[in-house]
Amino acid sequence: MNPNKKRLRRTMMFLNAQKPGLIKDPYIYKPDSIMLDLEDAVAENQKDAARFSLYHALRSIDYRGCERVVRINGLDTPYWQEDIRCAVAGGCDAVRIPKTESAKDVKTVENAVVQAEKDFRREEGSVLIMAAIESARGVMRALDICESSERLFGIALSGGDYTKDLQTHITGTGVELMGARQNMVIAARAAGVQCFDTVYTDLDDMEGFRQDVETIHLMGFDGKSIINPRQIDIVHEIFTPSQKDIIFAEKVVREIDDKKAKGIGVFTVDGKMIDIAFYDGAKRTIELAKASGVYKGDL
């Protein structure tokens, strides 16, 4: 398995691949991933130019540890195959499929990625895939999509197109996204892949943004797509375990290890009843703290 499949992805920042001013130094804001966009952000008559810009940015710019994901054009366009060749040749870490509606869509892209890895002498399996779900049909097939490829590291909700398909619109309350969010995060967890939430487009409403991020964090999402560097700190703050959470998780892990050896199944930590069911969650908190660079312990 590609070791990056499970990496930390709290924030994925969208950047128009056609805009040199945007793609030259986004790493200074420290998003976990950048999403270099060849699709909706790029005008129809600039699709060709965007690829050259993307290729040389990938080859020349040191993104300092930010994961470089490329959003290709849809499978219903004449662009996606050359997009994949360009992205893989440039050295991208992953390809994002827009408008994914079936496992077949993922397999189609996977086949093109495999060929591009061969053509451009990339290590087999080095390019990961993620699938954006943007329709009611895609949401209903989320589990199939999640289980379609060993390369697929996660799925992402694209709220704008999804709400159009649902014949509603983005309200800012999240009510119109509830079903899709719930279905997708359950499917992702069932398949053991990650799940990412849609963008929040009102940059003047940072309080609404914070509430949105808190909601999806509680729902179990791994991160959020973002459109502006101002959104990064809020997402990272909410998705990074607090020192209080970390200390409690350490106690839980140590106590369970200790009590297990003594044959004790149920006990209390800081006044809370704990048993083996808490073990994986506590370990996850510590792993997330490590990945976020805030863990100072020795577990």
């Binding site: 130019a49 020349s60 710019i61």
Partner: peptide
């Protein structure tokens, strides 16, 4: 423009001049 942008724009203009948008010789 950075060097990488200058290269990208020259290549885009040249390939537009010959009308080629697919099977480009990346690398």
């Amino acid at each position: 423009a950075l060097d990488c942008t200058i290269r990208a724009r020259i290549e885009a203009a040249v390939y537009r001049s010959v009308g080629q948008t697919e099977n480009l010789p990346w690398g």
